[in-house]
Design a protein around this nucleic acid. Structure first.
Length: 659
DNA sequence: ACGGGTAATACC
DNA sequence: TGGTATTAC
């Protein structure tokens, strides 16, 4: 439960932007002839026409609902256009929508601190912008107010739908005889209207918005007038709004907690919570949740807009319902079917073969745990009715790569122009990481000799060529000895190096500095130290595949004969680089998803990077300009004597314009 | 044989 | 810390 910092005198201006039936809009932009037609996006249409995951407003008029099947939708709306979600490697691929969301974020983030709340939702803190506007050009001083702003729905304003509604809104927006907060809110509404028009112009997407003094109220109202409209929540309207708001409509209360409030406390509206003391709510629901409830009943919500444009974790999963369940390779004598299959995780190693190997080991570990120690043999394929109905992997604990990371390669290659300060830093790095190396499987000399054998030119994401914003270059992201000790190589004294932050907040900073929001580029600056794998298994009737099949064959690149034995490959090959992970920060820039890998913990194993293991089909999903670059990396090439940073940094790192 | 595929967050 | 549960889109 979000901890609420009580701020009853909250004069922030927060907007929640919600894209209208976003997936549909993305598809309609791709296929303009679908515009204006009843349209829905479905994934997998084999079974009952697929599941609807987005429905256009035209289709909603026919009673088409999300969670209908394609077939059902056709029944209530025969002319509906069903567009399928792209499929990659046998599963739904949402990247097109993610990227489209990035387009929107990149526009919104120009006006204030921005938080990507989901694939199609964004919070914006417009306080500064609104205050600036109020100071420089307050609404009442404007000659005209934009038509879009005049279409705002202002809660509590009478005659909401009357013929002179716009005039009423104009009056409200331009009132000068009201309190500061209300004026700020009016500025916020004008700014959001402007932003929404910019989004429409730049992306062809419409969105709706809520503008209020906190996140909760903004979120609550962004969907009240859809599509393509905005709703403003003046302070004076909050009490009436919450008094009549069914409690389950409140974010976080849509599930069991909301049900408990209804059943156990007899509360049916958010306002109904007012009758309970904070203590009472805390006693029943815990200190945090209790306080949070007490606050939201009063319209108080201190959650801040996180300046984060990127996800904190990333995963991929697929379900195998019913008959499609993968049959396990175990014999299962007894095991209650209600027990949950445990999730397991381990440090992420790069390369599909290694991920397969790790995932399979995790699976076996989970299976042993699941079965208890009843000594069931894990072998053979004596399926006995049990199967796997879902598999997923996910990566989390992503942290930013600290400053000067790429310069590590100077040490290994000895080809970089050396600044007076960099030698010292390199030395420090070696010194700090020496214990790691000595306990690892490779010595430094091995590493050094192994690396240059590569036929591949690792593109170096040199940070030196990148522009640095004044504000971020100052001091706030300086390295500390502790960071170096954790295995980060830092070159803080390098005057032109990008001041990358490290640690938790660093992601926020990095994220917020990104104005284009391209997932790929940003991923070059994150580290994915964890691999997580989860499986569930339930009854199944037919044998449509095995676990092994899933692990081995679902990835086209791994079904090539050439790679048949990747799992047993040991040691180095010509096109494999094996370095301690601290050294791989640069090398991994050249992998297809371009993720740096480094754990906050000290892990002694070496990390492998094997260019053959890149699944070619992945590349097709990347943004076009990135595809070209990645393909060029994959072509064998002599390493030039002098490694100039071959990649355009701008493609990978956002302009560092501070926002 | 279903809402699938992802996320974030709180809690233990 | 790792793992689970809840909630949401």
């Amino acid at each position: 439960m979000p901890l609420a910092r009580p701020e009853s005198l909250d004069s922030r201006i927060i907007a929640h932007i919600d894209m209208d039936c976003f997936y549909v809009q993305v598809e309609q932009r791709k296929q303009p002839h679908l515009r204006g037609l009843p349209t829905a996006v479905v994934q997998y249409n084999e079974w009952k026409g697929g599941a609807l995951i987005a429905v256009s407003y035209e289709a909603r008029k026919f009673g088409v609902k999300r969670s209908m099947r394609g077939d059902e939708a056709k029944q209530v709306c025969p002319q509906i256009q069903l567009v399928q979600v792209p499929v990659a490697r046998g599963k739904a691929d949402l990247n097109a929508y993610r990227n489209a969301g990035s387009e929107v974020v990149s526009i919104l983030a120009r006006k204030g601190r921005c938080e990507r709340a989901s694939i199609d939702e964004v919070y914006l803190d417009l306080t500064d912008s609104a205050e600036a506007m109020l100071k420089e050009s307050p609404p009442h001083s404007l000659e005209s107010i934009d038509a879009e702003a005049l279409k705002s729905h202002v809660l509590g304003l009478k005659n909401e739908n009357g013929h002179d509604a716009k005039e009423k809104v104009r009056e409200w927006l331009c009132r000068s005889d009201t309190d500061h907060r209300e004026k700020l809110l009016a500025c916020g509404a004008i700014i959001v209207a402007e932003l929404r028009m910019q989004v429409l112009k730049a992306t062809e997407f419409t969105c709706s918005a809520g503008i209020a003094h906190n996140k909760m109220l903004a979120k609550l109202t962004s969907g009240m007038n859809k599509p393509a409209q905005q709703t403003v929540v003046p302070f004076s309207s909050v009490k009436a709004l919450l008094d009549s708001l069914p409690i389950k409509k409140m974010k976080q209360l849509g599930g069991k907690l909301g049900t408990s409030l209804q059943n156990d406390l007899g509360v049916n509206t958010v306002g109904g919570l007012l009758q309970f003391s904070e203590e009472k709510l805390q006693d029943r629901y815990g200190i945090n949740t209790g306080t949070w409830l007490w606050n939201i009943a009063r319209g108080i919500n201190g959650e801040e807009v996180q300046g984060r444009l990127l996800p904190k974790s990333h995963g991929s999963g697929k379900s195998f319902p019913g008959p499609r369940a993968l049959k396990t390779i175990v014999s299962l004598s007894d095991s209650d079917s209600h027990k949950k299959f445990p999730s397991k995780s381990c440090p992420l190693r790069y390369g599909t073969a290694k991920i397969q190997e790790d995932a399979f080991n995790l699976f076996q570990a989970g299976l042993r745990e699941y079965l208890g120690s009843c000594g069931v043999k894990i072998q053979g394929s004596n399926h006995n009715g049990w199967g796997i109905t879902a598999l997923s992997v996910s990566a989390s604990k992503i942290v930013a790569v600290p400053s000067g990371t790429c310069s590590i390669m100077k040490y290994f290659q000895g080809q970089y122009p050396s600044h007076s300060s960099s030698k010292q830093t390199s030395d420090n790095f070696i010194q700090e990481s020496a214990p790691l190396l000595s306990s690892g499987t490779e010595s430094y000399s091995e590493l050094k000799s192994a690396e240059p054998q590569s036929d591949y030119n690792f593109p170096c994401l040199d940070l030196q060529g990148q522009k640095i914003s004044e504000s971020r270059d100052k001091d706030s992201f300086c390295s500390s000895p502790k960071q170096a000790k954790d295995g980060f190589a830092l070159e803080t004294s390098q005057p032109t190096s990008q001041p990358l932050p490290s640690g938790g907040e660093s992601c926020s900073a990095v994220n917020q500095s990104n104005s284009r929001g391209c997932f790929f580029r940003d991923d070059t600056r994150v580290i994915l130290p964890k691999l997580e794998q989860q499986e569930q298994k339930r009854n199944a009737l037919e044998d449509k595949g095995t676990i092994l099949k899933f692990f081995k064959k679902s990835n086209p690149s791994c079904s090539k004969p050439k790679l048949e034995n990747v799992s047993v490959v040991q040691g180095l090959e010509a096109n494999e680089v094996e370095l301690p992970k601290e050294s791989l920060l640069l090398a991994e820039c050249s992998t297809n998803d371009c993720r740096h890998s480094l754990s906050q913990n000290v892990h002694r194993e070496a990390w492998h990077y094997k260019i053959d293991e890149i699944d070619p089909s992945v590349i097709d999903e990347l943004p076009q300009e990135i595809q070209d670059e990645v393909r060029s990396w994959l072509r064998p090439r002599k390493r030039p004597n002098t490694v100039k940073q071959g990649l355009t940094i701008a493609h990978y790192f956002p302009p560092t314009k501070a926002t």
